[in-house]
Computed example of a mutant assay.
Amino acid sequence: MSASDRERWDARFADGRLAEPAPPDALVGREHLLPAAGRALDVACGRGEVAVWLAARGLAVDAVDVSPVGLAAGRARPGGEAVRWIEADLAEGLPVAGPYDVVVCQRFRDPRLYPALTAALAPGGLLVVTVLSGSGGPFRAPPGELLAAFGHLAVLHQEESGGRASLVARAAAGDHGR
């Protein structure tokens, strides 16, 4: 990621607006799939709405983003002290190692990270991914991309509509995300 990308995200997050902590889009209505405890990874966490939501449910959360402004906003929000905030350029790969019981990647697409997301899953771990979809540039997934990338996992939910694609899947109990 270039310095201009980091600056763009910093400027976007500097407006001070904070949404309430919330589940990742693909998990709405499927919250029962979350484990009651364990480790979670929120990739491209922004201001930490999902990270803080996961931590409030008893998970030990690592939240990664390129924007120090977004991470500072997440750290400052109520419940933010329960999250480990990590500044990293995801173009260089995941800066953490699993295993994680939950891996969330919401509204960030980099197919080069897909193998690392599954490799970070603990046996039986839950993967939750939502990306923009359709035509229109490098930030949009073509039809079927998530299923092609993660179809080797046990797919619990998959949907492509309204310009978004989402997938919820579980690694096999004896599988380390492969």
Rank of each mutant, 00 (worst) to 15 (best):
S2D: 11
S2E: 07
E7H: 03
R8I: 00
F13K: 00
A14R: 03
R17W: 06
L18F: 00
P21S: 10
P23K: 07
V28S: 09
V28M: 09
G29C: 13
E31F: 08
H32W: 10
L33K: 09
L34K: 06
A37E: 15
G38L: 12
L41H: 07
D42F: 03
A44N: 04
C45K: 01
C45H: 03
G48V: 04
G48P: 10
A55N: 09
A56N: 15
D65S: 01
D65C: 01
P68G: 02
A72H: 01
A72V: 01
A73V: 03
A73S: 14
G74L: 09
G74H: 04
A76N: 13
A76W: 11
R77T: 08
P78H: 08
A82M: 11
V83G: 14
V83N: 11
L90Y: 08
E92N: 03
G93E: 10
L94R: 09
P95R: 08
P95D: 12
A97S: 15
G98Q: 11
P99H: 09
Y100P: 07
Y100K: 05
D101H: 15
V103F: 06
V103N: 07
C105V: 05
F108N: 01
P111Q: 04
P115E: 03
T118E: 10
A119P: 01
A120T: 12
L121P: 05
P123D: 07
G125A: 12
L127T: 07
T130I: 02
S133T: 13
G134C: 09
G136K: 04
A141L: 06
P142D: 10
L146C: 06
A149W: 08
H152M: 07
H152Y: 02
H152A: 15
A154T: 14
V155I: 04
V155W: 02
E159L: 10
G163N: 05
A171K: 06
